[in-house]
Nucleic acid binder design. Structure first.
Lengths: 216, 216
DNA sequence: GCAAGATACGAGCAATAGCTCGCATCCGAT
DNA sequence: ATCGGATGCGAGCTATTGCTCGTATCTTGC
């Protein structure tokens, strides 16, 4: 059983170039091992071996197994945030009809979600489902989601064809739907019958229909 | 590390009344312990203690830890199947407009999903996210989902106001959306701001909008 | 009341995990 | 060239886990 609460941050700052490489090698190895063997099955000895190092070296840079996991989570979350920021920064394609406009606005969110899952679905699953998530990482995650919901709500308010009476609620639904369905899609047998682009198209279609349906 | 592949079925059929009670007590204790401490953290000794028994007794009825998990999964899946069957058997409320009709048809699926998650979200999470899922249970799960998709597709074809060009694809989206969003909802901080009924209503609204949106 | 099987017990075994620590090796500043 | 700190090593300690097995207790049919 892992020793629970210690520093989850690296125990030592590398000062030589060599050490920095080592640090990265360990983290990369951890990603591969966790993805392949799961959290419980991915032992620190496996990770060290995969990195071509001894356990001792591993523990010079990471105080315990959970620290490795936390670092991977942080990296993945940061990458996700960067991904969506980049997508949003892209100039939106010229708008045509109203619906097309809304669809174009939603597309960056969908594409970002797809990108974030496509890279390494197995690792993603281990990080955000199987593994125990330390409180601070969970908080970071929720903050990220809250940010996305806020951004989505602002976007919905700016689009006149959005008929949802409560944009905040609708925004939560939009974000949750994108995240959840993408996640489910990549780990589903349905993937065989439907390629990623078609999936994204259909997802956008559903959201547009939901948001611009005649109000009640 | 758990011994991987052995019989996952109980090792001994109880013949006395007392034993049957014991079997049930063990399973109930396992549910509580797994829900509270996760899969890895829920040890067989914990479970035995929680059941007020010794480990030896536990192993008279379940050959190993994974068998307990498999049994819980089977029970949960069976309950889910029963739940949806019951909901579908209920006489649908009298139809009004077309949209209301479609909404009424979708409602049983949504309610069944909500029921299935509401009972014990923590256990549900452990069973279907954290824990290793044996192949046969996974297959059973996929079969259940495939069945739901088929039923949904049939339903969609029968509803004239459904504009989706590909009912099979739409059916997958409907089932995936219901399952995933419900799952996400029960384990989300958003739950505070939105009660279950309102959630179900909004979910149905989204699906109706998606399915009956003007075709493109 | 009694035998025989069913049930329950729990100390302890074997396996394996996370992690330490004393020592070897390497690198860079002087 | 050398010296000191940074880096790397890996046998092995400690803790814990899943699980066994010999024994004790209870139930039931006669």
């Amino acid at each position: 059983m892992p020793t629970a609460d210690r520093r989850l941050r690296p125990r030592k700052r590398p000062v030589q170039r060599r050490a920095e490489d080592t640090r990265d090698r360990i983290l990369a190895a951890a990603a591969r091992v966790f993805a392949a063997r799961g959290y419980a099955g991915g032992t620190t000895n496996h990770i060290a071996a995969e990195a071509g190092l001894s356990v001792g070296s591993l523990y010079q840079y990471y105080p315990n197994k959970d620290a490795l996991l936390a670092e991977l989570m942080r990296a993945h979350v940061a990458e996700g945030a960067a991904l969506i920021a980049r997508r949003l920064a892209e100039p939106p394609p010229a708008a045509a009809a109203d619906d097309a406009d809304l669809a174009a606005s939603l597309r960056p969110f969908v594409d970002a979600a797809i990108d974030n899952h496509r890279a390494d679905p197995a690792l993603h699953r281990v990080l955000f489902e199987e593994a125990p998530r330390p409180a601070d990482v969970l908080a970071e995650l929720h903050a990220l989601e809250a940010g996305a919901v806020t951004a989505a709500a602002r976007l919905l308010r700016a689009h006149p064809q959005v008929t949802a009476p409560d944009p905040d609620l609708a925004a939560w639904f939009v974000v949750a739907t994108i995240e959840s369905l993408t996640h489910r899609y990549v780990g589903s047998p349905a993937r065989g019958r439907l390629d990623l682009d078609a999936f994204g198209d259909e997802l956008v279609r559903m959201l547009v229909a939901y948001l611009s349906s005649p109000s009640r």
